[in-house]
């Protein structure tokens, strides 16, 4: 089934059971992942992994539909992790994940099959909370989300600077704006999202910034460039990136998502991502403009680096992913800013 077909079926429009996801402040509660910024994509009859603070009976919920999941639990890294089996025949669409009184909206997307050719809506730097323009940044983001919904794209990648100051209020506003998104949306933090260093506000809303997912034949690896620099070989990040890189090694296209590339990022991460087995392409943010095709962004290997305009300025860019090569379309300005 194509992404457009799913859109026409209108199944994505089914609302979750509750508008208020997470806890009353929008923070992740019992269920850490998947969530609305790090959703799970799975076939009906397939499975996905959930990370929770406590074990609970988990279910997929969409409107009147409730699918109780069969979960195999294990303790890992201070969390309870569940391999959740989706019953065959589960209707494709967007689901909330519910368990133990907690609900993560837009957390699980069920497919009958994944298309081999599809588009990614690359939306970056929305800077929710910014006063750069007359219109609020969240309203501009809302227009862009509506454009992505209508585009038939397979999913949205938001590569950093989700917020202007990294405050809990701004993250909550960002999540609120993204609730209108019918597509899976994957986020990574940017420098603005880090607010006061070390406060982990981003993690409280989306969980660990390093994760990998597959969309059909293709693999994507999200990471936080800034966490690779001071902690290279010191903290766990370098090892996690190595592991995630290996996890998507067999994918047709192997892509990265982050807010920017810098030669100053940790060498261990650079070796894993761009040297030993270079990613095919990297979607990144920060530049607030489309990069030229001959612009050398990554000085190693052959990773194609792609970025686009800031969502704050009303733009986004679609990347066509298909056999042969990923093809970036021209920037589109789709939302007025004044």
């Amino acid at each position: 089934m194509s992404a457009r077909g799913i859109g026409l079926a209108g199944f994505w429009m089914l609302a979750a059971t509750t508008a208020l996801a997470r806890d009353a402040n929008g923070l992740l509660d019992r269920i850490v992942t998947p969530n609305s910024g790090v959703p799970a994509l799975a076939l009906d009859g397939g499975n996905f992994e959930a990370a929770c603070r406590d074990r609970a009976s988990l279910a997929l919920v969409s409107g009147d539909i409730r699918v109780v999941l069969d979960c195999a639990w294990r303790a890992e890294g201070g969390l309870q992790k569940a391999l959740c089996s989706i019953p065959p025949g589960t209707e494709p669409g967007m689901y909330a994940l519910e368990g133990g009184g907690d609900v993560n909206t837009r957390a699980v997307f069920v497919y009958r099959s994944f298309p081999g050719t599809y588009a990614v809506a690359h939306l970056t730097d929305p800077h929710v909370g910014s006063n750069a323009h007359t219109r609020p940044a969240a309203a501009i983001l809302g227009d862009i989300v509506a454009h992505a919904n209508a585009s038939g794209a397979a999913f949205v990648a938001v590569t950093g600077d989700l917020t202007e100051h990294g405050t809990a209020e701004e993250f909550k506003e960002f999540i609120g704006a993204m609730e209108a998104c019918d597509l899976p949306s994957f986020v990574t933090p940017g420098t603005n999202d880090r607010g006061t260093a070390g406060d982990r506000v981003y993690e409280q809303f989306f969980g660990p910034p390093e994760y990998a997912f597959r969309f059909g034949e293709d693999g994507y690896l999200a990471f936080d460039t800034s966490r690779t620099a001071p902690t290279d070989d010191l903290g766990p990040e370098a090892g996690i990136i190595e592991r995630l890189r290996r996890d998507i090694k067999s994918a047709r296209w192997q892509a990265g998502l982050t807010y920017r590339y810098t030669p100053a990022m940790g060498m261990r991460a650079q070796l894993a991502l761009f040297v030993d087995t270079p990613l095919d392409f990297l979607l990144f943010g920060s530049l607030h403009r489309e990069n030229a095709t001959d612009e050398v962004i990554i000085p190693w290997g052959h990773t194609l680096a792609l970025t686009g305009p800031a969502a704050l300025d009303g733009g986004l860019r679609y990347i066509d992913v298909k056999p042969g090569r990923p093809f970036p379309r021209a920037t589109e300005i789709v939302a007025p800013v004044e």
Partner: peptide
């Protein structure tokens, strides 16, 4: 271990 990271 298959369930945690060990390093340094």
């Amino acid at each position: 271990s298959g369930s945690c990271e060990n390093w340094a």
